[in-house]
Amino acid sequence: MNIFKRLLLELQEMSLLSARAALGIFKKPRYIPEAIAQMDSIGVGSLTIIILTGFFTGGVLTLQTYQTLASYGATDQLGYLVSISLVRELGPVLTALMVTGRVVSAISAELGSMVVSEQIDAMRALGTDPNRKLVAPRLIALIVTLPLLTLVADVMGIAGGWAVSTFLYDLPSTMFINSVRDGITTDDIIGGIIKPLVFAFLMGTIACHKGLKTEGGTVGVGRSTTTAVVTASIIVIIADFFLAKALQVILGTQP
């Protein structure tokens, strides 16, 4: 099979997987407790790393751009610059990448070990569809929690930027806050929420697909985990570019 065919096949399998999981949501039994448990482990569990990532990214943005803005005498725009970079780009992408490292790896490793120890077969033999019991709750949990985590990262990033500008560069606190408030528009926030929704869907599908396709024992689990993390990270970055362009057109923010 050549690489193009294989790519198409993977795409077809992933679409089918997500379609089955999505259709399963509307049928009984519904796996609400499973979805809530996943939200807890994906969302609440990732909170610490997202808070730290957001805070220090905002901090370092201020650190790196302050000199340039000061040379133009535009330090009153510091909050605007930090917040717009965070809300539009860094928040969604960094959150997605951090969650990929923590969650996509965990999902594909968990499902992969279930495949090699025949637990998936056992589940099917017991009359339960793994797509609905395992895939759907994870997808839903990711789709619900990733936008929320992104918001946390944005807020923490702005807080980090504010902390550096206030305590390191002695800028007045109100100046930073006012430039954030004046700079950000509703469109930026909407765009910043739509992105993680799409990322979550892509990451969840890739993680579950790679996990369920595991072959070749424990070595296979390692291999599928690596592939899942690498593929999800790259897809997030590529999708970010196209989403940014699409959002510019849709929201009419195109210059």
Binding site: E118, A122, G127
Partner: peptide
């Protein structure tokens, strides 16, 4: 599958 019980090699417990 409801009519069939299956015992796996290593037990395949969850």
């Amino acid at each position: 599958r409801k009519k069939i019980g299956m015992i796996f090699q290593e037990g395949a417990l969850f």
